[in-house]
C-alpha cells in the first residue's frame, strides 16, 4: 500500500467524517438541552440541501443566496418541530418524544418527495477550484471548506454556550429543567432555541454537502442514522465529543475500506461502536461525571 493511497483514505475519511460530525453535533445540541434524541435530525440536512439546490437549479438563483435560503428553511423547520411538536409533548416522556420525531421524519420525507420529486440534485461548488494534489492524493477544496465549517461552527457554539445569556440558559436547562425554571430561565424558549440551532446546523450541513455529495428528497434518514451513530460513538452528551465521533466514524470507515474491505466498512464501524459501548457506555469522548 503506497503512501499516497493511505493519504487518500485519510482525506476520504475526513471528508465523510465532517459530514457525520455536522449531523452528530446537531443531535448533541438538542440532546444536551432537552434530553431528546431527534430522529428527524437528518431531515433538516435534506431540507437545507434540497431547498438550496432546487432554487439554484430550478429558478436560477445564485449559489450563495440559495444556500442562505436553504439554511433559513431548515431553521424554520426546526422552529416548527421544536415549538409546534416538542414543547406541547414535553411532559409525555422521552419515548413519546422520540416517536414524535420519528413521525415527523416520515412526514418530512414524504412531503419532500411530493415537492421535489425523486431526482437527486447537486449544487455548484462555492469555490470553483481544481482539487489539490498532495503526494499523489487528491483533496477537493469543498472538503476543506466542509471541515473548516464544522470546526468553526463547533467553536462558535462553544462560545455561545459559555459566554451568552441564552447559551448559559441552555446549559442550565440541560442539567435540570425544574431548577432552571426556578432560576427564572424560560425553559420553553430555551428548548425551542435548541431546536432552531440544531436545525440550522443541519441545514448548514445540507447546503455545504450538496456540492460534494449531492442531495435528494430521501437523504434524511441515512443522515439521521449515520449522525446518530457518530454522536453515540463520540458521546452525544457533549458537542465536542459528538464532532470527534463524526470524524472517528468517517476515518474508521475509510480505513476499513482501504485496508480490509469495502464490504465490511459499515459492519466494522458498527462493531467498533458496540465494543466501545461495552467499555464506555456513554461514548468515547465524555468525562465520566454522572453515574447511572
Amino acid at each position: 500500500m503506497s503512501f499516497s493511497a493511505f493519504l487518500q483514505f485519510l482525506f476520504s475519511g475526513v471528508t465523510t467524517g465532517a459530514v457525520y460530525a455536522f449531523v452528530a453535533l446537531a443531535f448533541s445540541v438538542t440532546f444536551t438541552s432537552s434530553g431528546i434524541v431527534n430522529f428527524a435530525q437528518g431531515q433538516f440536512v435534506m431540507i437545507g440541501g434540497m431547498v438550496a439546490a432546487s432554487l439554484c437549479a430550478g429558478y436560477g438563483i445564485p449559489v450563495l443566496p440559495a444556500m442562505l435560503i436553504g439554511v433559513a428553511a431548515a431553521a424554520v423547520a426546526g422552529l416548527v418541530v421544536g415549538a409546534g411538536f416538542i414543547l406541547p409533548m414535553l411532559r409525555r416522556g422521552e419515548f413519546t418524544l422520540i416517536l414524535v420525531t420519528l413521525g415527523l421524519s416520515i412526514v418530512f420525507e414524504a412531503l419532500a418527495l411530493i415537492a421535489f420529486g425523486t431526482d437527486p440534485l447537486s449544487l455548484p461548488s462555492l469555490l470553483d477550484l481544481e482539487p489539490l494534489m498532495v503526494h499523489g492524493a487528491s483533496l477537493s477544496p469543498d472538503s476543506i471548506l466542509l471541515v473548516a465549517a464544522i470546526l468553526a461552527v463547533l467553536a462558535g457554539f462553544h462560545v455561545f454556550v459559555r459566554y451568552t445569556r441564552w447559551g448559559r440558559a441552555m446549559r442550565a436547562t440541560s442539567i435540570d429543567t425544574s431548577v432552571a425554571a426556578s432560576l427564572g430561565i424560560n425553559v420553553a424558549f430555551t428548548i425551542a432555541l435548541a431546536f432552531v440551532l440544531s436545525a440550522t446546523f443541519g441545514g448548514l450541513a445540507g447546503v455545504l454537502l450538496a456540492p460534494v455529495i449531492s442531495t435528494g428528497a430521501q437523504t434524511g434518514l441515512l443522515m439521521t442514522l449515520k449522525g446518530f451513530t457518530a454522536a453515540v460513538l463520540g458521546g452525544i452528551s457533549t458537542p465536542a465529543g459528538s464532532v470527534a465521533g463524526g470524524f472517528l466514524l468517517g476515518l474508521v470507515e475509510a480505513m476499513a475500506t482501504g485496508f480490509i474491505s469495502s464490504t465490511y466498512q459499515n459492519a466494522i464501524g458498527l462493531g467498533l461502536l458496540i465494543l466501545l459501548l461495552m467499555v464506555r457506555p456513554e461514548g468515547l469522548f465524555t468525562a465520566r461525571t454522572r453515574r447511572a
Binding site: F9, S12, A254
Partner: peptide, 11 residues
Amino acid sequence: GDRDFTAQLTK
C-alpha cells in the same frame, strides 16, 4: 448510501 468513493477508487 455511500457518498465518497475515493478510498475504493484509489485501490
